[in-house]
Design a binder for these strands. Sequence first.
DNA 1: AAAATACTTTACGTTTACGTAAACTTTATC
DNA 2: GATAAAGTTTACGTAAACGTAAAGTATTTT
Lengths: 148, 148
Amino acid sequence: MDIKKTYSISELAKEFDVTTRSVRFYEDQGLLHPTRRGQTRIFSSKDRVRLKLILRGKRMGFSLAETKELFDLWDETLSGNEKQLLLMLDTLARKRAQLEQQKNDIAQAEMEMDTAEARCREALADLQKKKRQQNKAQAVEPESLEQK
Amino acid sequence: MDIKKTYSISELAKEFDVTTRSVRFYEDQGLLHPTRRGQTRIFSSKDRVRLKLILRGKRMGFSLAETKELFDLWDETLSGNEKQLLLMLDTLARKRAQLEQQKNDIAQAEMEMDTAEARCREALADLQKKKRQQNKAQAVEPESLEQK
DNA sequence: AAAATACTTTACGTTTACGTAAACTTTATC
DNA sequence: GATAAAGTTTACGTAAACGTAAAGTATTTT
């Protein structure tokens, strides 16, 4: 079995460094489904996992709506209906393509950052050279002052 | 030299599959700097490159503000001021860390999609087996009817 | 010259993802 | 039993990234 524990809203908020407002909002949008004891929310470890997925999705540029779609689709997939299974496979394939695009984008960005960094270091090296020449000039100056 | 051409707003919009509204918005936000002939915008190949970077940034989950910051920083970097150079190097390092995080996220997502896909295929295989068994049953049924 | 085409500015509208404040209950602590 | 701490709902506010008219200008085509 999982960790099998339950979580309060502030426990989750603290663990993942989000506000309770955000967590409530995610519930409101149908991404989380806490139960209630009285009116207090009780989150399951499934909710915890989903929160983690939500945040990772955000870092990857996914909207909450997209993530919710995936959650819902997965839930329906678990029903075992053939149509849903095929739909899920199709969706997975499309998401994979999206990830491929992102990997390409990242690789490109990294290359460009390499050249940018190289130029920076080159420019810095030039500045250092200039400085050394100035220091040499200054090292001579005192003498010329004394001779005056 | 570059491609050295200039571009109209609709040329760029068509090439990158965005609306002219978006292009004007990017200018408004200080991300593009077209010149004017009369009141008509004329985009340089530098603008074209920047538009490409803007869109890639978006796919990578960067806001326009973040992208603008990088543009501005890079422009100031080109001035050759030492402080700016160091700032740029620092920023590059932070962006690299961000990309690393994204790569981890993507790798994680891919792994989870692998297991999700495997479960789907397994469930589908089970369904196929059931179907074959049903077909076998149906193939026998006609005989049993005739014998009645 | 009239009409079509491409461009412009101005400005209000919309969606997403929360922030923030107000007013209220429930539970834990002194 | 008062007070603080953590939770709740309701609701208005906001920044980002455009969408969508409306109304005008400039140029090209017929």
